[in-house]
Design a protein around this nucleic acid. Structure first.
Lengths: 131, 131
DNA sequence: CAGAATCCCTCAAGATACTG
DNA sequence: CAGTATCTTGAGGGATTCTG
């Protein structure tokens, strides 16, 4: 390295600009965002977790998730059903009984949720110990 | 269980109401939400992924993330720095050079992101094959 | 280059009330 | 019980301009 000529050269050696990064980046970002779209929002995770403990009815889910409104629960359940994560079953009885359960596909989220929980638990400890 | 008396009893046998569920639920939900709060939003993941490929400067991150504005990049970097996921370094040179890198703590997100990516990739295939 | 400041707007989500 | 139908708000995010 002789004398410093331009800034960019100097910097580039420190943070080389690899065009490959951009491709790898976008290749990772899209699926991660897909996954996050499914899980994000205020209520989807609570609902998924509640149903991971077993089949439940509308009112029962509502009871287990503090502060959720009927509207939100209804809307989120519909979206989860559309994504094939949750199954809505209408039992042919009188009166009609409706319940919700996780589909096998929904259960495939288990590992993801578990990693989130593990990291979140660590993070929580870290935050609380600092303040 | 003799004859069917009330609906709720019948249903309860099918979907027993275990108060324990509620406790286990909230115990899981809080950390998962903590983790999601860190990762959600439109730009945090792209930034984290970009930096996971190495130390980068502001302008370079901006180039690798399509459509992000300076304001958003600046704001998100600040939040990530506050959460100790990203380190901002001011190099004492002339002109001053600033770069961003992942902290060890930020790198601890790797497993979480990888699970999200794996699931998201599967999900993407599934969606595309259906429509 | 690396942001800060300002203005604006959309949309997720809450409150409330109603229904088969 | 299992939802719908409206109305309203607040925060996330965009566009643009300015600066050390």
């Amino acid at each position: 390295m002789e004398t410093q000529t331009t800034l960019s050269e100097d910097i580039d050696q420190f943070t080389p600009h690899r065009p490959a990064d951009h491709n790898e980046c976008t290749g990772m970002i899209l699926p991660v965002r897909d996954a996050l779209d499914i899980l994000s929002g205020k209520w989807k995770l609570p609902i998924i977790i509640a149903l991971s403990f077993g089949t439940k009815r509308f009112g029962q889910i509502a009871k287990e998730i503090p502060n959720i409104t009927d509207k939100m629960l209804s809307k989120e359940l519909r979206e989860l059903e559309m994504n094939d994560l949750v199954k809505r079953t209408v039992h042919d009885s009188y009166p009609v009984v409706i319940d919700y359960s996780m589909t096998p596909y929904g259960q495939s989220l288990e590992k993801v949720i578990n990693e989130l929980r593990l990291w979140g638990t660590q993070h929580r400890k870290r935050i609380l110990s600092k303040e």
